[in-house]
Design a protein around this nucleic acid. Structure first.
Lengths: 113, 113
DNA sequence: TCACCGCATCGACACCCATCGATATCGACG
DNA sequence: CGTCGATATCGATGGGTGTCGATGCGGTGA
């Protein structure tokens, strides 16, 4: 894959933009990958329409219909993606949305018009 | 998992919203899943900053650094997700963004504030 | 102090998916 | 009509991930 061939040539694109950085594409994909799961979308939706002091894990298990370890797993994914944050209190863990996180992603998507 | 236990009870959330429909969450997740891949993000970015008559597959293969079947695969995923459209001309295939598709997703994400 | 509860982690398992080479299809061109 | 070039599809393969039960950890309350 180095002899440079003879250039296929037939269709060509002006190629205005510099192709988008590898790391940038990977980073955006990583956040979107965290979003691209039905249960995680439900979690975010619930966090968005919940009290500002957050929701604890036990209140998510029943509505989602999955086991508690799975809920913890999804919350961990969302947290590592910077979409939610955890506040520990006693033996409980209250999760809240990271303010503006979803908006930043939405802006990135709409930006490329 | 049916004796209804005795209600764990300890933390409770007001629970304002009706939990977001299953099908709705799955649909949104499906579109986001199509987006959540570095090469597909690069493809969309290139399509966004390309001539309005579209880009053919051969012009995507080299910049992405993956084999042609893989490019076709990614384009198929994006097409089935309703994000891009194909225009066949001779033996070439010109891909373009579906107008407003990304904006609709961005709006859905920003909506849940 | 001890039993219980909320949550996270671990190990296993099943499934999905990105990638590739090989091959099929389809149109252009000689 | 046969060849070639551009795409799509197929089958195989390796890595990633959602799910669960079991277990560990820390804090509460009797």
């Amino acid at each position: 894959m180095e002899p440079a061939a003879s250039a296929p040539l037939a269709c060509r694109t002006p190629l205005t933009a510099p192709a988008l950085d590898d790391a940038e594409a990977a980073a955006l994909a990583a956040v979107l990958k965290a979003l691209a799961e039905p249960n995680r979308i439900k979690i975010l939706h619930r966090l968005a329409s919940a009290a500002p002091d957050g929701v604890c894990v036990c209140d998510l298990t029943d509505p989602l219909g999955i086991a508690q370890p799975s809920v913890s797993h999804h919350l961990g994914v969302l947290r590592r993606a910077g979409l939610v944050q955890r506040r520990r209190e006693a033996s409980f863990a209250y999760y809240t949305l990271v303010p503006g996180a979803l908006d930043r992603i939405a802006a990135l998507l709409g930006e490329r018009r």
